[in-house]
Computed example of a mutant assay.
Amino acid sequence: MAARVIRNHDLVRVPWKNGGGTTAEVAAFPEGSGFDTFGWRISLADVASDGPFSVFPGIDRTLIVVEGSGIELNVEGIAYRLDRDSPKLSFSGDDTTAGRLLAGPIRDLNVMTRRGLFRHRTRFVESGVALLAEGTSVAFLVALDGSFDVTVASTIHSLQVLDALMLEAPQDLILLSGSGRAILVEIASDTPR
């Protein structure tokens, strides 16, 4: 299984057109693809002000608040509060969405997959063994609260806060150790139903 550490401090942050924040791409498939051509994309965003979200037709999204007090997302007229107690929301990129910061800037993790090609699942994990879902083709672990060690094929990969480990052709079990939590992102092919 191929494993690659992606350091948070190495990510390139690009300003949004509306000036409301920045985005740093963690990884995308195919590599080098743009917003109209990616199959899946994972990024970190720094949200500095309230405002509308970009519409991504045909894309399924999950947004997870990883730093800051939180944000209220208004998705098609329904408000969802994302904060430390409930930091995650999955929604359609087709939906009209706007964000209102609860108390200052936030940083969030965005996972996007193109419907009909890929699907994703996200969950929080702690020290122990993580069992990956059947059919997972690529997985990411993103350290949240502190350092995290991931053992893959007897090699230990050490992650600091917001570092990511990309696992291609992953095995079923991943050994995790650390003092905090991490986000596990699993991406699989999505066959048309």
Rank of each mutant, 00 (worst) to 15 (best):
A153E: 15
P105L: 06
L73Y: 05
I187Y: 00
G21M: 03
L175D: 14
T23I: 10
V75S: 13
A153K: 09
V66F: 02
S137C: 12
I64R: 02
V142G: 06
G93M: 07
T155S: 09
R121Y: 12
S127T: 11
V111E: 00
L159Y: 01
G20M: 02
F91D: 03
P15F: 09
W16C: 06
F53I: 13
F91Y: 04
D36N: 10
E31I: 12
I71N: 02
T96E: 14
L176T: 02
A188I: 12
I78R: 14
L73F: 08
D83W: 06
T136N: 00
L167F: 05
K88M: 14
R4S: 14
V125Y: 06
A130M: 07
F56R: 10
L82T: 04
G77R: 06
M112F: 11
R181H: 07
D85G: 14
L11G: 02
I106A: 01
P105I: 02
H120C: 04
A2M: 13
N18S: 04
F118Y: 14
E31W: 09
P170G: 01
V75N: 11
L89P: 00
E67A: 14
G135F: 05
A3Y: 04
N8S: 12
K88Y: 07
P52Y: 10
T136Y: 01
D190A: 15
R7A: 09
G135Q: 03
R61V: 08
T96A: 15
I42T: 13
D95A: 15
V138W: 00
F91N: 02
I42Q: 00
G104A: 05
F38V: 11
H120T: 09
L175R: 13
S154E: 15
E31P: 06
I6E: 04
S189D: 07
R81A: 11
F29L: 13
N8C: 15
